[in-house]
């Protein structure tokens, strides 16, 4: 997982990104609790096969760049009571991210 291995990545480390607010009933790997939330790109990973087509018998191509996106806990949960340096990272496919 070299951080610079995805040549076509449209976001870079430190970029502010917002997770798309879509709620398809079909298979996807973006958890509910980060949808519509803003975080920053921590790591740019490789491009992986797209689970949204691969889950239905297709090849999962073209591959999609995956990012480790970091969120402040306070930005995810209104009721979060822990220290301000508590964070969450999730791995998000590029087509679920928008510039913020």
């Amino acid at each position: 997982m070299s951080p610079d291995s995805s040549d076509s990545a449209i976001f870079g480390p430190g970029d502010r990104v917002r997770v798309s607010e879509r709620y398809p009933a079909s298979h996807h790997r973006t958890p509910w609790y980060i949808k519509g939330k803003t975080g920053r790109v921590d790591v740019v990973y490789d491009a992986y096969m797209n689970p949204e087509s691969r889950a239905y018998g297709q090849a999962g191509l073209p591959r999609v760049t995956v990012y480790r996106v970091e969120f402040d806990q306070a930005d995810l949960w209104e009721s979060y009571r822990g220290p301000a340096n508590d964070r969450i990272c999730a791995d998000v496919f590029e087509h679920w991210l928008e510039p913020a």
């Binding site: 790997r29 973006t30 958890p31 992986y48 220290p83 508590d86 964070r87 969450i88 990272c89 998000v92």
Partner: peptide
């Protein structure tokens, strides 16, 4: 301690 940040890692892709 509260000065240690807790970083939760949700492994939502293939990493």
């Amino acid at each position: 301690e509260s000065d240690i940040g807790v970083r939760v890692i949700d492994s939502t892709a293939e990493i």
